[in-house]
């Protein structure tokens, strides 16, 4: 009983996190994070629909009110599984959006480490991360230098 609930929980959180990332990225203009960069409205509404559908699916498909001793997930494990599900959702969004927007990003101004997520308005996460890691390997102190 426990495994299916945890699996369903992770799928639910994963899908909802992908939806939340699309809504937030479309609203704040982070084009490098969008799965359909030229259609931000589609990303915003599609993301919202994905979140709502994920919630409805989780609660409508099975009995979810179970004690920890009969397949339920206690608070500590819930934190862990949420981190895994949401982390995977965010990571998948970053990677897939990077692949889809690679050509566009080549024609844009490269992001700088100081911009952080703001660089995704004109760059992809993969390019930004690669650039930042190369700088960190050459000079590890760049990771924290200038951080006040």
């Amino acid at each position: 009983m426990a495994a299916p609930l945890i699996a369903d929980y992770v799928v639910w959180v994963f899908c909802a996190a992908v939806g939340v990332v699309q809504v937030a990225a479309a609203t704040t203009g982070l084009g490098g994070l969008l799965l359909a960069r030229t259609r931000p409205a589609l990303c915003r509404w599609g993301g919202a629909v994905l979140v709502i559908t994920a919630f409805a699916w989780f609660f409508a498909t099975d009995e979810r009110n179970l004690p920890d001793t009969a397949g339920g997930v206690d608070g500590v494990k819930q934190v862990m599984w949420f981190a895994i599900g949401a982390g995977a959702g965010v990571a998948a969004s970053l990677l897939v959006a990077s692949a889809l927007n690679h050509r566009w990003a080549l024609s844009q101004e490269p992001g700088t480490p100081d911009e952080g997520l703001g660089a995704l308005a004109h760059d992809t996460f993969a390019r930004l991360l690669a650039r930042n890691l190369r700088a960190a390997v050459r000079q590890p102190s760049t990771l924290w230098r200038g951080v006040r």
């Binding site: 997930v73 819930q78 949401a86």
Partner: peptide, 22 residues
Amino acid sequence: VSDYLVPVAGSLVMVGMWLWGQ
């Protein structure tokens, strides 16, 4: 009343907040 709905909804709002704004 479920153990999952409110914690997940709140945590997802926090995921959104992490990205939100300029």
